[in-house]
Amino acid sequence: MEGKEMKKIAMYWGAGCGGCDVSLLSLHEKILDLLEEAEIVFWPCAMDFKYEDLEKMKDGSIDIAFYNGAIRTEENEEIAKLLRKKSKILVAYGSCATEGCVIGLANLYSREEIFDTVYLKNETTKNEDGIIPSSNDLHLPEFLPHLKTLEQVVKVDAFIPGCPPPKPVLENALEALLQGKTEFGKSVALCDECPRKDSKPEKIEINKFYRWHEKEDNGDCFLAQGIICMGPATRAGCEAECISANIPCTGCMGAVPKVREQGISMLSALASILGDMDEEKEKEIIESLQDVVGTFYKYATAKLLPEGRLKDES
């Protein structure tokens, strides 16, 4: 290690599940290679670092800061800004930081509705006094009105998609980042590397939507079976981990670089391959599609509705 210029790296978790931190370990022995080139200067999840330590660092002294998790609280926002100041390259690590991820679906509800559900109406919560934690008595970081992605708070230099970033994506990203590159990853959609790609019929036509558990999987392209698979609109690179395990893609890798918006692109594609049928049947099938936002924007609701659900009072 001596004589070698070590990259200073940092990893922080905002509002997330912790899976991203764990995902670094999926590098297995390759993590040793990473440690040969890099020195971890801040990783509160793994080691004992204080925010003070970070504050004391010189601006721009961290070479690469990985921010995983979304921005849900004042604290998340504060650290995001701090890390931005202290780092040369700030990377949104994982789907939460990149597009808000599943927790971004919270933007369909108001803060009050969320608290209501979490603290009062949750069947497994016993809260007879109806206490909702608030800053008044505890000095908690404020829960922001809406969930934000990292980019909605600070300038971001690179994005590593995935929930959490799958091993091949991560390896590829780290290699590029250590070389100073901020553009990496594949620029085609998942079908390109899908193990079921050869089972696609000449024409895909859907006459009924099946949820994943409603149909016996015959091993063919999920879409051709009428099971919604986000693969055609989702960036490749994960080597189709889910599909290899017989689970349709839900789109955690986000959009292909050329695409403005993954959700609406897939919505259009899916509507387009509905079979010829009369208008009533058509409506019935589309009506059967529950939770449109959750289907097409499972990982990107925070981008679709950065200011929360709209309120068309009429």
Partner: peptide
Amino acid sequence: NYKARKRVEMMKKLLKEMGIN
């Protein structure tokens, strides 16, 4: 036009969930 009809129908569902009439 049939494709348009299907897309619009699905789009309406999305708008509704987003909070747009």
